[in-house]
Nucleic acid binder design. Structure first.
Lengths: 249, 249
DNA sequence: CGAATCCTTGAACACCTTCAACAGGGGTGG
DNA sequence: CCACCCCTGTTGAAGGTGTTCAAGGATTCG
């Protein structure tokens, strides 16, 4: 059972500060694991050098070997449409997993690119599967995370299908704000790590429309922006715009 | 509604002809299972009376107890937007699983409604999890099916984000055609089980737009339609419209 | 047979896109 | 350090695609 071999002290130290002391613990794959199971998970996790902005974590079509958790920084994931255009499917913050869509085909259907300097935990999939057989809660957490991804995609799908441009941008800003908040950062001030073009691509809008919306929100005193920096001045109104459901949400 | 009479011998027979002889075997959850493992899976699968059109398989917010496989007929699944509107997230044919999005929250995020008379296999989730611990390939197949759902949602997301109304309807018709074909039905003639309103809702278009597109495709001799019946006359052109990538796809 | 529902068609309008030009940083090289 | 260039982002005007509003036709079901 304890395949964990004695490790050099340096590695042990590095591993020790890994998942157990990671502030993202409760958002990430290890959630729900016992301490000793966590130790076993940590032995299979690989932590490489940070990636520089614009670097691929994996490309579309790459063979599927691992899933990836973000330790710090942010990513965008994208698919290619059949005429070769990029469709951004999500922006990912620390604690989130990417690469889950590759399980069924054994090849990455999405690509993932660093939006800023990013630290990644690489988790080889065959080893997760092996571990899951003796750590049921690991497999369960993997299922939960995949289910969350399905839910999130469905929400975004509804956004693209039904909402106006204003609503879409408001919803994105709120989503980013809430995710930063959960990670202990300011919910009202942050730097967008993605370009206007990325935002437009993700929201199904032209880049010019996104730009105009930022201007408009600023004129309405909902936001204050300087290029990538955003300060939310009126969260309530932003939520009203996003949800268009009066005061309740 | 009517009393579910216990018919022991009939039930036993019905269970016996279950997954092993089901024509959907290779599309569904049992794929990849050994014969004896399949027997064990079949003991937990519940097969109730067919549902009548318009009946819910499960509602939004229902506690999560099981996932559901379609034996015959078709379903639509939908989420509710925060202002209470229905957003259809998918149309489902025999062999497909629904309810996978509920795993993370233990409550159904989507609802599912029968579009016609539908036979359902109910697979209690706690029992799948128990079984998966001794049948690894069952857990793997579940992961694969969830991954496929993620991929499918991402494709649809790209459709809503980038494609024109013509492209969206063409893509949907091709998707339905291909899925019928894989199940041994005609790829060029079928009955749409969903309404124009459902199609519009799914594709992010007004019902009037959908209606006009059907008229247009008919005038272009791509389709022949009589209300819900569709005959595809020019599959090649339909694919060209959907993909807008010349002759290749 | 009538009512209700679903679908179709027409016309005006709105929203967002496209095209075009310009502004403003950030980096590089002189 | 400044000038220059490139890239990103902003702004304006025109145009198109799909929506909305409105009315009429078809089908189903009681």
């Amino acid at each position: 059972m304890a395949a964990t071999q004695a490790l050099p002290t340096l590695d042990a130290a590095r591993l020790k500060i890994a998942c157990k002391s990671c502030s993202l613990f409760e958002l990430c794959l290890p959630l729900g694991l016992e301490s000793n199971d966590l130790d076993r998970l940590e032995t299979i996790i690989q932590r490489a050098k940070p990636l520089t902005p614009g670097t691929h974590v994996f490309h579309v079509g790459d063979p599927f070997r691992a899933i990836y958790a973000i330790r710090s920084g942010s990513l965008k994931s994208y698919t290619l449409t059949n005429d070769g255009e990029e469709q951004i499917t999500g922006f990912h913050l620390p604690g989130e997993l990417v690469g889950l869509d590759a399980i069924s085909t054994n090849a990455h259907h999405c690509g993932a690119i660093a939006l800023e300097t990013v630290s990644i935990c690489t988790i080889p999939f065959d080893q997760i599967q092996t571990l899951s057989q003796t750590i049921p809660s690991l497999g369960q957490q993997l299922l939960r995370l995949m289910s969350m991804e399905i839910m999130h995609n469905q929400d975004h799908l509804a956004t693209l299908s039904k909402k106006s441009a204003d609503q879409r941008l408001a919803a994105l800003l709120i989503s980013i704000s809430e995710r930063y908040k959960r990670r202990g950062f300011s919910e009202s001030e942050f730097n967008l790590t993605m370009s206007r073009g990325d935002i437009g691509n993700y929201l199904g809008l032209a880049i010019e429309t996104v730009s105009r919306l930022f201007t408009k929100f600023q004129q309405q005193n909902i936001l204050e922006t300087q290029r990538k920096f955003v300060r939310i001045l009126d969260m309530q109104q932003l939520k009203t715009i996003a949800g268009s459901c009066g005061t309740a949400c």
